[in-house]
Design a protein around this nucleic acid. Structure first.
Lengths: 112, 112
DNA sequence: CTTATATTTAAGTTATTGATTAATTAAGGA
DNA sequence: TCCTTAATTAATCAATAACTTAAATATAAG
């Protein structure tokens, strides 16, 4: 899969409150679907769908034993996400730009 | 606004390829809506809506001069996003969990 | 072989998203 | 004033998201 596409899936996965709760749970250790579902107030199929979204984003993996699926958090997509953010961030550039915009807002524009 | 809600808005904003392009543009310096639109192959209203999403997420601010709006990147929501991710990540926990899940997958489950 | 448990698939509903075109607002310049 | 430029609002549409209930699948256990 393409890199940009992968990033979209990761951020979209993280955009949902319930899915973030699931990731928080998994950050304390791997768990079965049942264990993940327990504290959530939604139906089992709803959880299943959320897990599918997380899996497609590469944020979790599933291992099967008998009728249980054990979900585990994967760090790589999380790292890719933070890497992208940090790449844009460029600390002092941001501060300078903010100042610049502020000043421009008070005086004349510099249109094309 | 609530913290969780804010995070959802930020991640949802980052989940769109076009909006990420806009942020990349702005990370190189503030720009007007026209300048942001130029390299994008979508209509002006579409850009306007994307900017609204970014603004609601707190990722950009708008300053007005005459008929121009100058957009600037804001670092705080980006920091909040990376902070959340890093909070879950806990490097070696993840590695241990992955191993643990792998082993569990090969042997017996530990059901509730 | 029958039943209970864990989870997924299917089908349907409602809300939200990302886009479009057409119309509107606002400012500056001829 | 009239026209052009910059940007937003309004109305509309198709695709997707997040849920639901009901049915299906798979495995273990009686």
């Amino acid at each position: 899969m393409e890199d940009e596409e992968q990033l979209s899936l990761v951020f979209a996965a993280l955009a949902d409150r319930t899915r973030r709760e699931i990731l928080v749970h998994l950050s304390r250790g791997s768990a079965t679907v049942g264990e993940i579902s327990a504290p959530l107030s939604i139906s089992a199929p709803a959880v299943s769908q959320h897990l599918k979204v997380l899996e497609r984003a590469g944020l979790v993996t599933r291992t099967v034993n008998a009728q249980w699926r054990t979900l585990s958090l994967q760090s790589q997509p999380l790292d890719a996400a933070t890497a992208w953010i940090q790449e844009q961030r460029g600390t002092w550039n941001l501060r300078l730009d903010a100042l610049e915009a502020h000043l421009e807002g008070m005086t004349a524009p510099s249109p094309p």
